[in-house]
Amino acid sequence: MSENGLTDRALRVFRHIGSLGESRIAAAGAVIILFWALVAIFAGEIAAYGPNAQLVPFQPPGASAPDGGTFWLGTDHLGRDILSRIAFGSRTVLIYATSATAAAYAVGIVMGLAAGYMRGWIDDVLSRVADLILSFPVLVLYVVIITTFGPSGLNIVLAVVFASAPGIMRIVRSLTLDLSSRDYVAAAETRGESAWYVMFAEILPNARGPLIVDACLRLGYTTITIGVLGFFGLGLPPPDPDWGGMISAGRAMATFAPHMTVFPALAISSLVLGLNMLADGLREISMKD
């Protein structure tokens, strides 16, 4: 029985992926994201050199390396191969952007469900707290949090959660308010289900459509945020590769070594573009139904 359910589930997942083909924009976005995911997984194979190996500085793209290889995207001021750094940097971005967004969602969903379903004082308190956080400029929040607790992967995640959970909460809350009035929620209540069951089994699964679209967009913002933090020197501590940090390092030399900034910038923008396209496409597909 469970095996059957498993193949069923697998079939459904494939059908969902297949439905991406209905929107060209979604398919294109998914291809870009898949590309970066593959780069991250096979970074070790793609990168000809270690991400922190110092070879020949300021080589232009396509220059040949002393060991007979080629610096396809050139090298930076410390002689590190930019292609290798971008490849390894994609791991950082994908891991931290995904985990930060996921964590923000976990917090935002719980808050939003509680506020939208329980109403009353819980809603009042949570909504006011959310308003308070949302009234600060996001960048200031990030800078304050990270300068206070120090730049580290975990702190980046915490900062993203703190700054974006209220926004997610608002979306979840409004979806919950709408879904709470459905008859199947009343049916669950009249058979004595707990509030937790109603929130997570009856309401949340039916809010997933808009939430998935929003999650794609938000993943894009988080990617930019991590880039921006890296640019300000608040990202991952050096020397580990970080796209934002790479742009920042190349900034002063942008006039005579533009490849140092252009390629990491392209990497960030293409990933964000892919996520935004996927979000747009998913919205388009969901409108069709």
């Binding site: 199947y184 009343a186 049916a187 009249t190 058979r191 089994a201 009856e202 039916n206």
Partner: peptide, 18 residues
């Protein structure tokens, strides 16, 4: 609870779609 149950009006809302 089990002695008193309800059948709802709107067929599209009475069941959890997921």
């Amino acid at each position: 609870l089990s002695a008193l149950q309800m059948v709802f009006q709107n067929p599209d809302e009475t069941l959890n779609p997921s």
